[in-house]
């Protein structure tokens, strides 16, 4: 089964993300990368926990003064939903339904972009209302680094998925691009996993002090 073979509904395998050796390698390599990313984010979380509320003097705002739960809740809902929509996209990928896959990926991208917009609004709000910036205190540095790394992952994920959608829009699914879509969706879920810990550890635990 060569990667560039023209596929039909009948010949489409059950696990197109692992049908060729290249695909198997990509699949495994990406999971291993996610294992490394786990350590990367754990280090960032650890740094944040060590520097939470560490400010030079009492004029600086602390976590419990800053965060706005409704906004975070909305962002969380957007990202969680985008995780489900990318599951839908992979469902259609397995059924060799290229159009529906593209559609659901498109929705995923929109939700992701919405999340990113909220995050930018949120940062802007902290900077202008509370003078809580990257350089104002160790707490600020740690907060923006952790959430910023996550935000950068979201932005990169969006660019990646859009590139894949545009690049493959004309030619439909084959065994060369199916693993690419699959791996991108894994990445997107991982971003969501990280966010679950961010909203719990940074925002919710920040609120309770």
């Amino acid at each position: 089964m060569h990667a560039d073979e023209k596929m039909t509904y009948e010949t489409w395998p059950a696990a197109p993300e692992k049908a060729t050796l290249e695909a198997k390698n990509k699949f495994l390599g990406f999971w291993l990368f996610l294992g490394g990313e786990t350590v990367l984010f754990a280090s960032l979380f650890a740094t944040y926990l060590a520097l939470k509320d560490k400010v030079p003097n009492s004029e600086h705002y602390l976590a419990k003064d800053l965060f706005d739960l409704p906004l975070v809740f909305m962002a969380t809902m957007l990202l969680l939903t985008s995780s489900l929509t990318s599951v839908y996209a992979m469902y259609h990928m397995k059924n060799f339904d290229f159009k529906k896959m593209q559609l659901w990926l498109g929705i995923t991208v929109l939700l992701g972009a919405g999340f990113l917009g909220l995050e930018i609004y949120e940062f802007n709000h902290y900077v202008h209302e509370y003078h809580h910036t990257f350089t104002s205190s160790a707490f600020g540095s740690a907060f923006y680094t952790l959430t910023g790394f996550h935000g950068a992952h979201v932005a990169f994920g969006l660019a990646w998925i859009i590139t894949l959608m545009v690049r493959n829009s004309g030619r439909g699914l084959d065994l060369y691009n199916a693993p690419k879509f699959y791996v991108a969706s894994l990445y997107w879920h991982f971003i969501d996993v990280v966010w679950v810990f961010i909203f719990t550890v940074v925002y919710l635990m920040g609120m309770v002090g």
Binding site: L28, G35, T38, S43, A46
Partner: peptide, 22 residues
């Protein structure tokens, strides 16, 4: 199997890091 092994190894290393930092 291999993905789980490496993911959980990553979680272990990460957990030790978080524990140490707190």
């Amino acid at each position: 199997e291999a993905p789980s092994l490496f993911l959980y190894s990553g979680v272990t290393v990460g957990a030790i890091t978080v524990l140490a930092f707190s």
